[in-house]
């Protein structure tokens, strides 16, 4: 693996006990984690899909919000590292009886665990847990703040498709993130990861879902997908999160999809080799047309596959740093 680290300084050591946000990782940290993930990829293709890296360790999936793929992906990642995995769901737990987040986390830690993977509907929840416990904490999505492993697996997917895994240098690339930016933790994590690797980011959406604050984060903002599409190497289509919309953010589904939906007709404006990404779950026919989601440009299933190696790397590095 050390050979693949390429430009990494010899004395580099992964410094983070937690994986809470990509904002707080350096570009060197991100490249190191991506390179580590590259090394773990082969585990999934062996007949015995396990390595003993975390044998005897305990990883808890502490999920306060519905999740299918992220939860399964973390579970499988921990299993492949030979850790024991405990699933903890907010439903039917003591949380329903009025226990605070901090108490819940401390009780779980008291069972002797090495890492807590936490998803929560409130921004900042993962950090709060990390401050309450002594073990590693990995953020699997906190409100509309960050979803670091998603951001990492997205840049990992781009790097693999565009043959940039030797350096993970994205200089010269431009990526559009389209849709409900305001409520998206995926957008925030992607912005940090992409910018740290050297890519430029343009955010596209209706003004009601595109806060001006992203301009201060160095992003270009646009309301015109047709104008943006020809100039980007990848387009990441976000799901319209109806469950997070507290008031009407656009006039109708019909208007949204005709202005911001990625249709086959609209794809005519894009580069032939543009990457079409989506963090899932998709609203087919709303933000993305099936013909596009299932086209050769689409990386949607690769993203899911890549998530596994990313999460193995995340668990391995954070627990190893403890």
């Amino acid at each position: 693996m050390s050979k693949q680290l390429g430009n990494q300084a010899d004395d580099y050591r992964w410094p983070h006990r937690h994986l809470l946000s990509l904002e707080e990782l350096s570009s060197q940290d991100i490249r190191f984690l991506l390179t580590t993930a590259l090394g773990f990829e082969s585990v999934s293709t062996r007949s015995v899909k396990k390595v003993p890296a975390l044998r005897g360790r305990v990883v808890v999936n502490l999920f306060f919000e519905d999740s299918t793929r992220t939860r399964a992906s973390f579970h499988l990642a921990a299993s492949r590292l030979s850790a024991d995995v405990l699933e903890f769901s907010a439903k039917g737990s003591s949380v329903a009886k009025g226990e605070t987040l901090i108490d819940t986390a401390r009780n779980i830690e008291a069972m002797g665990v090495d890492a807590i993977v936490v998803r929560h509907q409130q921004s900042g929840a993962a950090r709060m847990v990390s401050q309450a416990v002594g073990c590693s904490v990995l953020n699997a999505g906190d409100g509309q703040h960050e979803h670091p492993t998603q951001g990492l697996l997205d840049v990992f997917t781009i790097a693999k498709r565009l043959n940039r895994t030797d350096t993970f240098d994205f200089t010269g690339l431009k990526v559009a993130i389209v849709g409900d930016i305001a409520h998206s933790r995926v957008a925030r994590s992607n912005v940090h990861a992409l910018q740290k690797l050297g890519a430029r980011v343009v955010l596209v959406g209706p003004p009601t879902l595109l806060p001006g604050g992203f301009r201060d984060m160095g992003c270009e903002l646009s309301h015109d997908l047709d104008a943006v599409l020809p100039g980007v190497d990848a387009v990441n289509m976000l799901r319209v999160q109806f469950e997070r919309l507290t008031s009407q953010a656009f006039p109708s589904v019909r208007e949204y999809s005709s202005l911001f939906g990625l249709t086959a007709a609209r794809m005519q404006r894009a580069r032939k080799d543009i990457l079409v990404m989506h963090p899932g779950p998709m609203n087919r026919g709303l933000e993305i047309e099936s013909a596009v989601a299932d086209s050769p440009n689409s990386t949607i299933l690769e993203q899911v596959t890549n998530g596994l190696a990313i999460r193995m790397a995340g668990l391995f590095l954070t627990v190893g740093a403890s």
Partner: peptide, 8 residues
């Protein structure tokens, strides 16, 4: 109460 279909 609600935005009309302004874009369309």
């Amino acid at each position: 109460k609600e935005l009309a279909e302004i874009g369309l």
